[in-house]
Design a protein around this nucleic acid. Structure first.
Length: 272
DNA sequence: CTGGTCACCTGGAAGC
DNA sequence: TGCTTCCAGGTGACCA
């Protein structure tokens, strides 16, 4: 569900709502998400104050002052900050209680996960091998060209590989390739500098635009305050199979499956 | 190493 | 109405 723009939207909501708040209580409503909760999860959080919240790729990092926890939303994870008297609903799995509000984590499919960190979160197993942040300076055409060298993986799949570039998911991979006029089946290593000079800005632009729109709400994504994203109205190809390539060539968008995931592209403007 | 397939889990939509 | 099948913003184990 949530890709970089959605996680960024959640982070921004959490920043304004719970930073500086003291965690009075932690409650677990089951013993695992994708993995079991760390045994000392409750003890390590209780009584601590949220010092800061940052994002790395699709992970949220909660800083309690030199230690803390981090989480991934999987496909259907979401946080909401609600008044203390709000009742728990189906698929709420844990809560943090603050003096005048509570944070609830809801995740129907439970592909999400949380873990603890100490010292430097970037050395955590989940973060250590991540590739460049697509919106950061490290991600540029020259570096991408060098990193993709000789790879026969289709570029669409390469963009989903978090070790290559971290934070892009299935929606924005298709959208960025359409913007850059690159066919999703092109081997990553076959892209030349000209291609990367289009693709890198296309990725940055689509992610930036999506963040400004509060992310994309296809099914159940929402911000911490319950508000919905609206970037889905700006999709050029995603979930637009058999509809025209709008504002460009008018050919019909195609849907193919790559590595088990749907890809959308315009067969006319994205030639191999 | 590499790339592809499948499993993890629930629910909504579409098909019959 | 109800049953079945397919599909979904992600990731990682497993296999050729």
């Amino acid at each position: 569900m949530p890709e970089l723009p959605e996680v960024e939207t959640v982070k921004n909501g959490l920043l304004s709502r719970i930073v500086g708040q003291r965690i009075e209580a932690v409650a677990l409503f089951r013993q695992n998400l994708r993995y079991p909760f760390p045994i000392d999860f409750v003890d390590r959080l209780q009584g601590q104050t949220i010092a800061n919240i940052t994002r790395r790729a699709k992970f949220l990092i909660f800083d309690l002052g030199g230690h803390g926890f981090l989480g991934h939303l999987g496909m259907t994870g979401s946080y909401r900050v609600v008044p203390l008297d709000q009742h728990v609903i189906k698929h709420d799995h844990f809560s943090l209680t603050f003096p005048d509000a509570q944070l609830l984590y809801n995740d129907p499919r439970r592909f999400g996960a949380v873990d603890l960190w100490m010292g430097d979160p970037t050395t955590h197993d989940w973060l250590r091998d991540l590739g460049d942040e697509p919106l950061g300076n490290g991600f540029n055409p020259e570096r991408a060209l060098a990193r993709a060298r000789a790879s026969k993986t289709p570029i669409k799949s390469a963009l989903l590989n978090q070790r290559f570039v971290a934070g892009i998911g299935n929606i924005y991979a298709s959208e960025a390739l359409w913007r850059a006029r690159i066919h999703p089946e092109t081997p990553a290593g076959a892209l030349d500098l000209d291609d990367w000079n289009r693709l890198v800005p296309a990725i940055r632009d689509v992610l930036d635009a999506a963040i400004r729109s509060g992310g994309s709400t296809l099914r159940d994504f929402h911000a911490v305050d319950g508000s919905l994203g609206y970037f889905q109205h700006n999709f050029d190809v995603y979930e637009r199979a058999d509809r025209p390539c709008a504002n460009r060539c008018g050919a019909l968008i195609e849907r193919i499956v790559q590595s088990g995931r749907a890809s959308y592209f315009c067969p006319q403007c994205q030639m191999k």
